[in-house]
Amino acid sequence: MKKQNEKLKVLVVDDAPSILLPLEFMMRKNGYDVFVARNGTEAIESVNKELPQVVILDIMMPDVDGYEVCQYIRSKKEMEGAKVIFLTAKSKDVDIQKGYEVGADLYVTKPFSPRYLLEKIQELTEG
């Protein structure tokens, strides 16, 4: 449905390069405009600069953690309608609950299937 000229902007946030690698590749392959951030501060900068429609967030990061980044996104007017997906190793119920509480659209635990993640992103952005 999306046209090539209005590429979906996706921001991927994770502090592990080995995880950014597949994510970035996958998104780009799918035709998204991908931005990468290695920590919370970078993520917020990128959010302000690029106003992405989808943000994929790790939670455990040095400096600002994923929850805080999500809260920031939800408080930002320009980011209204943006989808936030947590992609994290934190798999306890309380963590998941907290993720939805701070305003996530989806919570995916690591390790994850790139295929599944892509499907979900499509569902979220088109539905």
């Binding site: 995880i19 597949p22 996958m26 392959k29 190793a89 690591k110 390790p111 790139p114 295929r115």
Partner: peptide
Amino acid sequence: LSTVTHELRTPLTSIRALSEILYDN
């Protein structure tokens, strides 16, 4: 334990995602 699993998950995640991409493409 939770720290260990977390630390284990990161390489595991990477391996799994990369393998799946390699397989699919």
